[in-house]
Design a protein around this nucleic acid. Sequence first.
DNA 1: CGTACTGTATTAGTTTCTTAATACACTATG
DNA 2: CATAGTGTATTAAGAAACTAATACAGTACG
Lengths: 138, 138
Amino acid sequence: MAWDFTDNAPIYMQIVNGLQREIASGAYAPGTRLPSVRDLALEAGVNPNTMQRALAELERRGLVNAQRTAGRFVTEDTAALSEMRKSLSETIVADFYRKMRGLGLSDEEIISVVRTWIRENTADNSAASLSSQGGDLK
Amino acid sequence: MAWDFTDNAPIYMQIVNGLQREIASGAYAPGTRLPSVRDLALEAGVNPNTMQRALAELERRGLVNAQRTAGRFVTEDTAALSEMRKSLSETIVADFYRKMRGLGLSDEEIISVVRTWIRENTADNSAASLSSQGGDLK
DNA sequence: CGTACTGTATTAGTTTCTTAATACACTATG
DNA sequence: CATAGTGTATTAAGAAACTAATACAGTACG
């Protein structure tokens, strides 16, 4: 993933949310071994302690489990992952809608703006859909 | 506005962004007097210093100007407001799109999910559009 | 005039976040 | 066995965020 940290939220929380989305999407497949804490920290450009904190939170949420010496692995509870993906999608859309309404846009305008933005800001629109592999996003 | 603070960003920054959207939308019309620092703080449930900090940032951004003893007033630079509204919309959509793609949704799915969500989560869909009063959101 | 209400400034203390530098226990690998 | 690579824990230091309690200067209004 391309790390941003332009948000105002704590870095470790942005990492948590980003990794959660990647796990929910299947970009990090169930059972897959994650890079080590130190490698992830290096890649993200943060202190290992910060990455450790993020991973501990993912652990607490049951998304990954540590093998102590072998590394960290993505949970294989695909049912939970599917549920989480749907839940995350809901949350993200709700937040988006709240902000856009706060800007004064009507429902119709919101849909229109999304469509226009996508048309104007995506070079290729092939977009290999993941909806068939775990999707069922309602 | 309904204050949330469920975000992980600093409270004062969430206030800044929320007020910025309300000003950009015209909910706080140009030239309008804002409630006092203390009243806004009371309403938002935060310390007056926190609200003061948020307002100082809005001041720095040129969205409001303080009259020292009379109160704070929304800028009357409607051209800048219109531009800002468009800019904010872009930023919000881009952030939304980045997160949804991170979840593995295709462009088509993103549009579909937005439409579905709106259909299922809005009681009345009358939505008095503001696009005629300052809009031209492209 | 004087009371109440503006924005603003100051000082303090607590908590959270981030980086830093180690250290330890354990295991896979050569 | 020894080395390197796991996750994990600890301690320290600095910066940022939030709350708290005042205080001051200026204006509107009765």
